[in-house]
Amino acid sequence: MTAPLPKLTVWYNTRCPVCNAGIDWQRNRLVQAARAGAIEFRDINLEPDALVRFGANVEDIRRRLHGVDADGRLYVGADCAAAIWLRTPGDAWLGRLAGLPVVGSLARFGYDRFADILYAWNRRKGHW
């Protein structure tokens, strides 16, 4: 049996309809992980300076998911998504898959392109 993963705190932009829908869509799966204390979601709009110690400002977090585990490790973008999946019952296989070298590189590339497009769309629509 493997040791439990350290708690993950994830900051995201609740004003982004796509980001919010993504978290809402997974919320039922995440409830069990949240109740167990494995994961917590926070609104970056309420804590804009939350990750300044990592050099991340509010715009960085509005562009890409950011998470920090209890050991102080920072996860950004696709790596943050993988960390969430590893803690979500039934989705851990996705997290392990995204952690493979080639798959992880492709996931980061795809996530970053999508995040850039979504960020630009949110700015145009005023979702701040």
Results as ranks from 00 to 15, higher is better:
20 N>H: 12
101 P>C: 08
121 W>F: 13
61 I>A: 01
8 L>C: 09
45 N>E: 13
49 D>L: 09
9 T>G: 09
30 L>W: 06
6 P>K: 12
12 Y>R: 00
30 L>R: 10
2 T>L: 03
110 G>T: 08
23 I>E: 06
11 W>Q: 07
40 E>F: 00
99 G>Y: 05
49 D>E: 15
86 L>E: 11
79 D>H: 10
47 E>D: 14
59 E>V: 09
128 W>R: 15
19 C>S: 12
13 N>V: 01
94 L>H: 07
102 V>H: 03
37 G>C: 04
75 Y>Q: 04
19 C>V: 04
16 C>I: 07
32 Q>G: 06
46 L>Q: 14
86 L>Y: 00
119 Y>I: 02
122 N>C: 13
51 L>Y: 00
24 D>V: 04
121 W>V: 11
95 G>C: 09
10 V>M: 04
64 R>D: 11
99 G>P: 03
75 Y>L: 09
49 D>F: 07
60 D>P: 01
70 A>E: 15
100 L>F: 02
92 A>I: 01
82 A>S: 12
20 N>V: 01
38 A>N: 06
70 A>Q: 13
127 H>K: 07
18 V>S: 12
67 G>C: 13
14 T>W: 02
89 P>N: 14
57 N>I: 02
66 H>D: 08
33 A>V: 05
60 D>K: 05
127 H>A: 02
68 V>M: 09
50 A>V: 06
127 H>C: 12
54 F>D: 14
81 A>D: 05
92 A>T: 12
